[in-house]
Design a protein around this nucleic acid. Structure first.
Ligand SMILES: [Mn+2]
Ligand SMILES: [Mn+2]
Ligand SMILES: [Zn+2]
Ligand SMILES: [Zn+2]
Lengths: 149, 149
DNA sequence: AGCTTATTGATACTGAGTATCAATATAGCA
DNA sequence: TGCTATATTGATACTCAGTATCAATAAGCT
């Protein structure tokens, strides 16, 4: 339930994870992985693309989105759904996490300790669904964004 | 926690709700409201548009999306986020609800009785966020979609 | 170094929604 | 019931977030 440092996993760890999965370590992937590990808070694919471009990278737009998909699949990134319908991504700490997201600035506080297990067990017995996962996302306004002016 | 019938609120109720909010009751809005009250399960704006067109309605595409927004705002519809990133909408029963969504066919079971209140209180005291809302969405495969063949 | 094939970037495309704006219809009121 | 102010509409063009295609390239294995 406390703010979780993203330092728990390095860019190198993530690259190893990619390799172990049988994926090739390419220059574009290295760039994207290093970029996301240097970030905090929510970002979009477009932002990632823009920022890499700015610092002279030649990574293609499609590659950005492809790589994001891979990283979401590997649970390195989490996809976050915002109230306005837009999607952002956040680096994910190991384990089961959820997010408290600032609707104003996109700041994210990860937390764990969600207590929906019982609820899910209940649903599993009461419906004929095979339950595969859940999302819990909490949103509000962070301290900084509450300041007037 | 049980499957909730959508019959709890009629198209007429919804139209009254619109009127009470100060919104005009227009032909397109009536068509959309009647259409959604005749549905069950998840639908997209595009589907709504297509279906209304098929039955000879002249409602514009923009109007569909505008009306959906109004209905989400008024808590007549819920926006549902699917694992693949697509958005659907469901008629919402009165009160605080969440959804169990079939990833294969889009079937939806509404449920209530979410137990994240304590969690949220906790977050509110531990962070400086003003908390404004939450999403809880559970997904899996419904009984029908589990059948082989 | 050579070979296989995963990955890339350019390009063009889609899907979902939105800004614009002149035309129209609604609701409140005389 | 008709008049008027303005909320709403539909057509159009546009944006934004991603995706399919495909020839060129580069990883990684041997
Ligand atoms: Mn979403
Ligand atoms: Mn809840
Ligand atoms: Zn903020
Ligand atoms: Zn299903």
């Amino acid at each position: 339930m406390e703010r979780v440092s993203y330092r728990g996993r390095t860019a190198q760890d993530t690259l190893n994870h990619l390799r172990e999965t049988g994926l090739r370590i390419t220059e574009p992937r290295v760039e994207v992985v290093e970029e996301i590990h240097g970030r905090q808070g929510l970002f979009t694919g477009e932002q990632l693309y823009g920022d890499l471009r700015e610092r002279g990278s030649g990574v293609g737009r499609a590659t950005i989105f492809r790589t994001i998909d891979v990283l979401v699949e590997l649970e390195i990134l989490d996809r976050v759904h915002q109230p306005d319908g837009a999607h952002g991504y956040v680096l994910r700490s190991p384990g089961h996490r959820h997010h408290l997201v600032c609707s104003a600035c996109g700041d994210v506080v990860e937390f764990q300790g969600c207590n929906v297990g019982d609820l899910i067990d209940d649903l599993a017995t009461r419906t004929d669904f095979r339950i595969e996962g859940h999302w819990l996302e909490i949103f509000g306004t962070c301290g900084r964004c509450q300041q007037p002016g």
